[in-house]
């Protein structure tokens, strides 16, 4: 049983498929996420692939504060992902609401709506920071094994 579990964890770490979702960002964070996926950084080296549908994804990469309008959709996208799933909040806005915190149409950071596994601050977070954050998230999967 232990071996099977080890193999599955290994496979999970080696093949994170991500879904990118803009929850109300100013678009700068999105550009940085896309930049992290370009041949310059070549995330396919680590098995990262950008998927179009939540059904295929393992990691939901959110950028921006949760607006009142996007709240239902965010929950729905999250519910559509198969277990085990993780959420990464990219950018200061996604972490806490950032400069938009307190606006009449803003609910707050991503964690005000769905559970978040990793926060990557920065305005906007640089591609290197995003990669670092995802790698740290994946490493945390491995930790309890040791």
């Amino acid at each position: 049983m232990g071996l099977v579990k080890k193999i599955v964890t290994w496979a999970r770490i080696k093949s994170p498929w991500i879904l990118h979702f803009n929850t109300g960002a100013c678009n700068a964070c999105d550009i940085e996420i896309i930049a992290a996926l370009t041949p310059r950084y070549d995330l396919e080296r680590f098995g990262v692939q950008l998927k179009g549908t939540p059904r295929h994804a393992d990691i939901l990469v959110c950028s921006g504060p949760v607006t009142k309008q996007i709240e239902d959709r965010l929950v729905r996208i999250y519910e559509q992902m198969p277990e085990p799933k993780f959420v990464v909040a990219v950018g200061t806005c996604a972490c806490s609401g950032g400069v938009f915190n307190g606006c009449y149409n803003i609910k707050g950071g991503i964690k005000s709506t769905i559970p978040v596994s990793a926060f990557i601050p920065g305005c906007p977070a640089s591609p290197k920071a995003i990669i670092d954050g995802v790698v740290k998230l994946l490493q945390s999967l491995e930790e309890p094994k040791k």
């Binding site: 193999i7 599955v8 290994w10 496979a11 999970r12 080696k14 093949s15 041949p39 070549d42 396919e44 080296r45 098995g47 393992d58």
Partner: peptide, 16 residues
């Protein structure tokens, strides 16, 4: 002009 996935990539995808 990319490095590309390592050899075990597709197996990891499948198992995952």
């Amino acid at each position: 002009n990319r490095v590309g996935p390592p050899w075990f990539q597709t197996f990891a995808d499948f198992i995952k």
